[in-house]
């Protein structure tokens, strides 16, 4: 009845844990999001979100050590586009994350701390998982827009 439901495509990229590869990661994700016919604004959102996720892996999970690897997968489903980022560094604890106050950060002359906030604002769904030594973040946008922002399950499709 709905043959498209099984039409999932997955594309993968592995890069060293260095910021010099961020541009390559952005281009990889943008290329597939555009090929999946997401609008330009969504393609741009995926570029930023995957950049923020990989930057966090490089700086926090791997603490700047450039000898590790980051695995990126793009998963294209009929109703959604997901970017999965995996590392084997220190796990991120999303429950400890606080929404940044830019005025406080400016007073403290702090240069960072808002990558997670940007990801959550740009994506419909951001999910963290840790299994054994592998940490994973999944960045998802649905074709129909905004209905599953940050944790709520997608609304059932009207029949």
């Amino acid at each position: 009845m709905i043959p498209d439901a099984v039409a999932r495509s997955t594309y993968t990229l592995q890069v060293p844990s260095s910021t010099r590869h961020l541009e390559q990661v952005r281009q990889f994700v943008a290329r597939h999001a555009a090929a999946a016919q997401f609008p330009e604004e969504a393609v741009e959102a995926f570029k930023i979100a995957v950049d923020e996720a990989c930057t966090n892996v490089i700086k926090h999970a791997y603490k700047g050590n450039e000898t590790h690897l980051i695995d990126i997968a793009v998963i294209v489903d009929p109703d959604r586009f997901t970017v999965r980022i995996r590392d084997q560094g220190e796990a991120f604890r999303p429950e400890e994350y606080q929404t940044p106050d830019i005025f406080k950060l400016a007073r403290k002359r702090r240069a960072g701390g808002f990558g997670v906030h940007i990801m959550r604002r740009l994506m419909d769904h951001v999910e963290y998982r840790t299994r054994g030594r592998i940490n994973e973040v999944r960045l998802t946008k649905y074709r129909t827009g905004d209905r599953a922002r940050n944790g709520a399950p997608p609304a059932p499709s009207p029949s």
Partner: peptide, 17 residues
């Protein structure tokens, strides 16, 4: 053409000074 939070952070770090 593009900015991520790392770029924004530079502005944050210097504006007070």
């Amino acid at each position: 053409q593009y900015i991520s939070s790392a770029g924004l952070g530079v502005f944050m770090a210097y504006i007070e000074e």
